[in-house]
Design a binder for these strands. Structure first.
Lengths: 287, 287
DNA sequence: GGTGATTTGTGCGTATGTATT
DNA sequence: TAATACATACGCACAAATCAC
């Protein structure tokens, strides 16, 4: 197939990308199978190598392909793991119906085990001056010191997610949260022991591309965004902690069970699915 | 400043990108201010234009910069709008404490108005064969027909989010959901009128890069992921609808108020904040 | 309204480096 | 070691969009 650029047409590399996308979606290559090498694509389409690379760049940045130097270019496959970020108290799958928050790590590890995978973690405890992101939510003074408890999570040894919990130093002072080790039973148990029973939380969710440090840690190539959950935990008398968790979005999905599910099981849906296939939306309205 | 490549160093374009990132983070240019033009950067750093473009590509794909043909390259600014995806019934800001779900559009429009912005929408109603994404969650047969009600939302005329609600045809048949118009009071009211009172839902959240159609509709350049919310609504007797909402992640944040917040206001936090600044994570563990 | 200068976008060619097989 | 395949880097030319005049 030869691509020649006519007037009014999209650029070559974009049409090449579109054609490759079509062939990919058509199942011409399976996950893990290499695409034709760049020189082969040059010949197939009769374009310069630069143009091939521009086209493949597009698909890499969409998260469809991954390039490996010296080997080839491959379809990316998406084994997605669900993580239950919240279960309503009425949810029957919840062990203790009275509490809405469980030991996060234990629950996460159970989910991983259920999927036949092994969750491990590294732990760091630091005392830092909080940014306004944190102080605003904790309702403390800007620049005030907070206890930062960081959990680096690995799935089968692969970097998976980063959780950073921030506590006001005054609050954490007399608790197990000052120890440079994970609290058995979870941080929320240490909080509860100190009289701070978390009764609710506010989650703020966003997605963005990783910065270089994050990309390196997550081993996330181009086209892989982060899913960021910022949870502020509340007692009856106010906020007590802010937890920011970052997930590599191509491997993770967050689940919230809300309200009453009427005694039904949570839906069991295959994990590998991707929601896509937008129909024709028409042109966007002019601004 | 001249960048010369030594052995064992990172490639020129990556170090150039890192230096530009440093200057950007250092506040050398403000949001909306153009960066030096490519030829200027060639001279400043003593590299080929290609190298400059590779470096800028990196930052564009991180969502830091945006290029405008014929004008220049600019810092992207991030006016983020919060959207309350869920409020716990005990949340005092909820108008009617008995129901956990409000008319989504009305609530959304109120939030927008509170931020001094205007939410508009287009509406489409289609009957389509559902994908397994949908049928699995609705517990109907694969390929069964569903009513697809699509809401295209614009903020101040700018493409903002796409909401697609799917209902089993049998369920929707005798309701206002078959009409090719938005239901006053919201779809959930039409459902309730037909005896299907939604008592809970399960939200599945993920993020990914947009496909070409989505990127075009959202006018999302490289480096802008989508935040996707897939909500399955339940009555006491089972699921009745699946709603997929796609947000341009650089402009939106989803908020979930969960559990009891003890009569406290939802936290009022400036919208423009970005959570970033990962500390040193150390090297990831080997696989 | 048109013209030219500026700036990014597209496309080609070539050469060499680096990782994998 | 050699071949293969992607990565980096240089150069050049022209197209297309924007803006100042």
């Amino acid at each position: 197939m030869n691509i020649s650029r006519g007037p009014g047409q999209a650029p070559k590399y974009q049409r090449l990308a579109a054609d490759l996308r079509r062939r990919i979606m058509g199942g011409e290559w399976q996950g893990g199978t290499p695409l034709p090498v760049e020189s082969e694509l040059e010949n197939q389409y009769g374009v310069a190598r630069n143009t091939v690379r521009l086209a493949v760049d597009v698909l890499v940045n969409e998260g469809l392909l991954v390039r490996v130097q010296g080997k080839g270019t491959y379809l990316k496959d998406h084994p997605v793991l669900d993580h239950h970020a919240y279960r309503a108290p009425s949810d029957p799958e919840l062990g203790s119906p009275g509490t809405s928050l469980r030991s996060a790590f234990a629950a996460y590890a159970e989910e991983a085990a259920a999927a036949g995978r092994k969750l491990t973690s590294d732990f760091q405890m630091l005392i830092v001056r909080a940014t306004t992101d944190i102080t605003d939510r904790l309702r403390i003074e800007p620049g005030e010191a907070v206890v930062l408890r960081r959990m680096l999570r690995y799935m089968d040894g692969e970097p998976w997610s980063v959780e950073e919990s921030h506590y006001p130093v005054g609050l954490a002072a007399s608790t197990a949260l000052m120890a440079p080790d994970p609290v058995v039973g979870g941080d929320e148990m240490a909080l509860a022991d100190a009289g701070y029973l978390e009764t609710g939380c506010v989650d703020e969710l966003c997605a963005r591309m990783p910065n270089p440090e994050e990309a390196q840690w997550f081993q996330a190539g181009p086209g892989v965004p982060l899913l960021v959950q910022l949870r502020t935990g509340y007692t009856e008398s106010g906020p007590v902690r802010v937890t920011e968790t970052r997930y590599s979005a191509d491997r993770n999905r967050l689940i919230y069970s809300l309200g009453s599910l009427g005694g039904l099981d949570a839906p069991s849906v295959r994990s590998a699915e991707v929601f896509s296939e937008i129909g024709d939306l028409g042109a966007p309205a002019e601004i």
